[in-house]
Structure formats: structure tokens, C-alpha cells
Simulated assay, not measured.
Amino acid sequence: MTVAVGIKALNEAAHIDAAIGSARAALDRVGGGLVVLADSGSSDETIKLAQAYPGTRIAQLADPAERSCGTGAQLAFQAASETPGVDYFYLLDGDMVLDSSFLEAGIAFLEANPRHAAVGGRVREVNTDSIEFELRARNDRVKGSAVAGDVDRLDCGGLYRVAAVQRVGHFADRNLHAFEEYELGARLRADGWRLARIDVPAVEHHGHATGGYQLMWRRLRTGYAGGPGEVIRAAWGRPHWSQVLRGFAQLRYSVIVYGWWLAMLVALAMGQGIALLAVVLLPVVFLTMRRRSLRVGIYSLVTWNVIAIGMLQGLMRARRPADAPVRARDLSAPGR
């Protein structure tokens, strides 16, 4: 066995059959491998459905209070790497379907490019009813997963060399509520590795059906919006700090928003109503022209403000040791 597919999930009963089935089909094309489900405390039928697949290892987070995107991803890698002989690891979300041919193409790429730590492929957003995923699909067509070549991260999953990840300490920082793929990419690149996307299908992503503004409010309320600040905290004083300082777009967005807030406060304090109105409208006009849509421009501005608020949330949040083992229960079916 050389390949493991880790699936991180929370209440994914509607999609987990398709996720596990697609992982098994892709592994069959490369001679077999291990499927690991890292469950963050599902209360639906996710575990029961996964137990119906012989050979699937199921690790469930022991303490739901530790739940985060980084914790789920690290638990998946931790459970997979406990099995000897795993050379490659693919991370899949529970609401994704892995293309049956990607592992074969990904392994061939990594075998031919020994300085690349990981490779991803094209991501197709299935649910674009929400403005959030509509924008993701649009960005993918312009500068995201549809563009082949070296990248700074592998959003929506990728195939990683286990040895490269072990060199940088851990797969995902368990403190991160978002941007765990970017943080891992920064650590790998600081260690001299490269990451790439290739022009082959990788996954179909179903995503949330929740409306964009409702989703943003949920992230603020639950603390997941603090991801950008947590990335900065994680990088401070570490070898990958320069990578984050130069390349983390959310840091630039936050600085711009803080300047905007300051300009509004100055105009308000000086009693300059016209100047205040101009300052308020300037980013709306700019983003509307850039996005070619008033609706999308306003949504982008709100997103930037949420990122700036989350930056402050994450910077003030306490951290646990990133490389400490994630406590979990083995819920694999008997006779696995």
C-alpha cells in the first residue's frame, strides 16, 4: 500500500457514500490503498454509512470542542500515516467526489518531479446557487484550479508526499479554522519544496447551500472567520513567515480595510460629510467596476470587512501546540 485518501467530514450523510466510493475507485486504479474518514463529531448517519465500506478506517475527534478545519485535516493525515508504507496522501472533503483518474495522474507527476511536494488538479464547483461558490467558480476559471503550473497552495485538496509533510512537522495546524491549505503550502515552500496544479480533473465540490451573507455571519459567530489571524500567529517567528508576509492576500485585504476604517473615522471626526460619503462609496465603486456587478462588488466589500475582523479575532486567540497528537476514537467497523 502506498496511497491513502483522507476524508474529513462533519454531518456529511448526504455526500459520504459518493466521497468514499470515489476514493475507492481512484485507489483501485493505482493498485489499492487506504481510505480514512476523519470525523469531527457527526450527529447524523455519516459514521454508520462509512462503516458499511469494508477496510475504511474511521477516526472520530474525541473532543468536539477542538473542532476546526485544521484539526480535521490533521486527524486524517495522522490516522493515515500511522499505517506503515504510505508514501502519498490525498485530502478530500466529505462533500467532494474524487475523479477516478486523478491519483494515477498525480503520482505520475510527483514521480517525474521530485522537488514537488504536492500536486492538485481542476476543481469543479457543483453548487453555484450561493454567491460564495459562484465567486469561487468564477475565480477558478480566471486564476484558480483551472490554471496549471506552480501554485502557493492546493485549495480543495491535493496529493502530498508523506515524507515532505513529515519534514515540516505536521500536515495541518490544528489551531486553524480556515486557510490550512495555504499555511501548509507556506511551510513546504519555505523548506524548498514546490506545489503544482495539473490540467486534469481532480474533484467535484458540492459546497454549502447556505446563502453567502448567512455563511459569513456563521463564520463570525463560530470563530471560523478568525482563520487569517491564526495563520499570522502560526507563522510569526517561523521559517515560513516571509512566505506569509509576501503572499497572503488576506493580510493585504485587512490592511486596506483598516486604512478605510481610519479614513472614515477621520472624516467623521472632522465633520466632513461630503468627504465621509466619498470615502464610504469609493471601495463600492471600485469593486463594482472590478467585478462588473454591483451585487458582487458589495458582497466583495463585505467579505473584505469580515476578513479584517477575523484577522483581529485570530491574532488574539490562544494556540495549542500544532504538532501535538489529535485525540480520537477508532470507530472502524469490526473486522476492518
Rank of each mutant, 00 (worst) to 15 (best):
28 D>S: 15
55 G>V: 11
47 I>G: 07
31 G>Q: 09
97 V>I: 12
70 G>K: 05
99 D>P: 00
27 L>C: 13
118 A>V: 01
102 F>Y: 10
39 D>H: 06
87 D>F: 01
31 G>Y: 09
50 A>V: 00
40 S>E: 14
119 V>R: 00
71 T>C: 13
82 E>L: 02
107 I>E: 07
141 R>C: 03
105 A>W: 03
95 D>L: 11
32 G>S: 12
47 I>R: 07
136 R>K: 01
41 G>I: 03
138 R>T: 03
44 D>A: 02
42 S>M: 07
105 A>G: 02
141 R>Y: 02
94 G>D: 13
96 M>G: 03
87 D>K: 15
113 N>Q: 08
83 T>E: 13
49 L>P: 00
78 Q>A: 07
135 L>Y: 06
98 L>C: 08
117 A>S: 08
84 P>I: 01
102 F>C: 06
111 E>K: 13
39 D>T: 03
77 F>V: 02
111 E>A: 12
70 G>H: 12
118 A>N: 08
41 G>S: 11
89 F>V: 03
35 V>G: 08
50 A>H: 07
54 P>S: 01
45 E>N: 09
34 L>S: 07
74 Q>P: 02
51 Q>R: 15
153 R>L: 14
124 R>V: 04
101 S>I: 02
71 T>F: 09
42 S>A: 12
109 F>S: 01
120 G>Q: 10
72 G>T: 06
146 A>G: 03
64 P>I: 03
47 I>Y: 06
30 V>H: 08
90 Y>F: 15
80 A>S: 14
131 I>K: 11
48 K>E: 15
49 L>D: 00
85 G>Q: 07
133 F>R: 06
134 E>F: 12
153 R>S: 15
60 Q>D: 04
142 V>H: 05
47 I>Q: 08
51 Q>H: 05
62 A>G: 09
37 L>F: 08
53 Y>L: 08
62 A>I: 05
50 A>K: 06
56 T>E: 05
40 S>P: 02
65 A>Y: 11
142 V>K: 12
106 G>V: 11
38 A>H: 06
31 G>M: 10
117 A>H: 06
33 G>F: 14
126 V>I: 15
77 F>M: 13
132 E>P: 00
115 R>S: 09
98 L>G: 06
36 V>F: 12
113 N>G: 05
119 V>E: 13
137 A>N: 14
113 N>E: 11
132 E>L: 04
125 E>S: 05
51 Q>K: 15
101 S>P: 00
102 F>V: 05
48 K>I: 01
53 Y>W: 15
46 T>G: 00
63 D>F: 04
110 L>G: 01
69 C>G: 12
125 E>M: 12
46 T>E: 04
143 K>N: 07
89 F>P: 07
111 E>P: 00
58 I>K: 14
130 S>Q: 01
28 D>H: 07
80 A>W: 14
75 L>D: 05
59 A>C: 13
87 D>C: 06
52 A>N: 11
50 A>R: 08
132 E>Y: 11
73 A>S: 14
151 V>M: 13
